[in-house]
């Protein structure tokens, strides 16, 4: 199996200009995290591939890169799940249905979902890292018969930090996928597992020789996940992960997102692990 992290061409025109989108619905997910459904003001569908991201603008405040977390099979509705961590995300969070956000995108490489057909698919997510993986989960579940086992390993800090909680419950109720959840710290009435996500990986549930892994979460979590996957027989050429770096333009012009010789905005965010393994283990790249 030889799969590369693919890229596709984004729309032409002045790539600096945001396109206007209308906010249709805002849903609070966690104390600091919300999901926003938006539609283009000028109509038309918005096509993207799982793992790609958009630059979202709050006019007059700023612009941030946010991964797309909706269903690629439903291009009429663009969905973003965002954690409020700074002034721009706070400004976007303060907008109401009917208000306008600016969108540039979609940008970047995507999870090689089609190329994984025939294999078991292992999703390893940490915290809000589940959001960029959700489109891939949707696409695979819509095309279920072409895949082997589908396994989701999801870790979060506490039960209160579990994203898409009702959806996770639905997934856990399905017979054609396995969803395992673990938290670093049990609070309240948590009766589930406690520990780090690598514990779940060791539990197996996938064919070590015929699996593709999609990994997204904090860099330190991905580091351990990749290592454990390797120990479980999933080699670096079958592990894909989504990197995060500061991003100002998403076009390769601003220089901020450089990760070694690559630009995360264009060559990533989704990388095949063996392509970046050397850099991944160097300090402060």
């Amino acid at each position: 199996m030889d799969i590369a992290a693919p890229t596709i061409r984004p729309p032409s025109g002045d790539p600096m200009l945001p396109r206007l989108f209308r906010i249709e619905r805002v849903k609070k997910e966690l104390s600091d995290t919300f999901t926003m459904e938006i539609t283009p003001a000028d109509g038309g569908p918005f096509h993207f591939r799982p793992g790609q991201f958009n630059m979202l603008s709050a006019f007059g405040v700023g612009e941030v890169p946010i991964s797309i977390s909706g269903d690629p099979g439903d291009p009429e509705l663009l969905v973003h799940t965002t954690r409020v961590v700074g002034s721009v995300t706070a400004a976007i969070c303060a907008l109401k249905p009917g208000d306008t956000v600016g969108v540039r995108g979609p940008f970047g490489s995507h999870w090689p979902v089609e190329d994984a057909r025939g294999a078991d698919v292992v999703f390893v997510a940490g915290g809000i890292g589940l959001a960029p993986l959700r489109p891939a989960i949707y696409q695979i579940m819509a095309d279920r018969e072409h895949y082997g086992n589908v396994v989701i390993f999801y870790g979060s800090r506490t039960p209160e930090d579990l994203l898409y909680r009702r959806e996770l419950q639905r997934w856990r109720g399905r017979f054609d996928m396995s969803t395992e959840i673990i938290v670093d710290r049990a609070t309240g009435h948590w009766g589930g597992r406690v520990g780090v996500v690598t514990k779940l990986i060791r539990g197996g549930g996938f064919d070590r020789h015929h699996s593709i892994a999609f990994v997204c979460g904090p860099e330190v979590m991905m580091r351990f996940a990749v290592q454990t996957l390797g120990e479980c027989g999933v080699t670096g050429d079958r592990v894909f992960l989504s990197m995060e770096r500061n991003m100002k333009c998403a076009l390769g012009f601003c220089g901020h997102c450089q990760f070694g010789p690559t630009f995360v905005c264009r060559d990533g965010p989704v990388y095949r692990y063996d392509a970046i393994e050397r850099l991944f283990n160097v300090w402060e790249v």
């Binding site: 006019f59 007059g60 700023g62 100002k248 601003c254 220089g255």
Partner: peptide
């Protein structure tokens, strides 16, 4: 060539610039 961006508004909030 590296750059950053700054968004601004006028006092009325009617005009935004990048």
């Amino acid at each position: 060539f590296c750059t950053s961006v700054e968004d601004t508004t006028d006092l009325s909030g009617e005009v935004a610039e990048r």
